[in-house]
């Protein structure tokens, strides 16, 4: 079993327990999924504060609407879809507010320049090569890197990429990254 399949399964079983009245199961579920939801919101281009708000409000919505999620097995997809929709809504609002106030475009809130944190040579090389990929590739790789080969149905829904093309998309992105890394002596597999 791959790591992500087990993440999806673990989330499903915790959510199932929660719905069956073991309310305490929400605790491990929140701890399991929150980091992934954060990375999803950030890969939609939200600022750090907005990403936090989105993660909070999606959890509130899940608890409020727990009974309307038809199959507990889809809880990861539900969370991912909700994070993406809510992230888009928030960034639309932000853009509208900027237009209204005639403010200059905010700087890209995606992860800041890697100089801010101490990265070793391999990480710097990885960052450089990743940054040269398309934004969609960067978002996809960011999300699937959370746990190896993903559950494609869940991921396709949460990233808005048709399920049939997510494998090939992942393949293309990963092949491109891998090729440029292998040609860079600064990068080393570890």
């Amino acid at each position: 079993m791959t790591e992500t399949t087990s993440l999806v399964k673990e989330a499903a079983s915790l959510f199932s327990e929660f719905r069956d009245g073991q309310r305490g199961s929400i605790d491990p579920l929140v701890r399991l999924m929150t980091p992934t939801m954060w990375h999803m919101a950030r890969s939609c281009g939200l600022s750090s504060g907005d990403a936090e708000d989105v993660v909070q409000s999606v959890w509130l919505a899940l608890v409020a609407k727990a009974d309307t999620v038809r199959d507990p097995a889809t809880v990861v997809a539900w969370l991912g879809t909700s994070v993406r929709r809510e992230s888009w809504r928030v960034s639309r609002e932000r853009r509208r507010a900027q237009l209204r106030n005639d403010l200059p475009e905010r700087p890209d809130p995606a992860p800041g320049p890697a100089e801010k944190v101490v990265l070793d040579e391999t990480q710097q090389a990885l960052w450089r090569h990743l940054s040269s990929l398309s934004p969609r590739c960067q978002a996809l790789l960011r999300v699937i890197s959370r746990g190896g080969p993903p559950d494609y149905a869940a991921l396709a829904q949460s990233l808005g990429i048709p399920v049939g093309s997510i494998g090939p998309t992942r393949g293309r992105c990963l092949v491109a990254l891998r090729r440029s890394l292998l040609n860079d002596p600064a990068w080393s597999p570890s």
């Binding site: 992860p111 801010k116 990265l119 990885l126 990743l130 790789l141 960011r142 990254l177 891998r178």
Partner: peptide, 14 residues
């Protein structure tokens, strides 16, 4: 391995 490095990278950078 590359995906593993990516996960560590994002946890370090953001």
């Amino acid at each position: 391995m590359i995906l593993g490095q990516l996960a560590c990278l994002f946890d370090a950078v953001d």
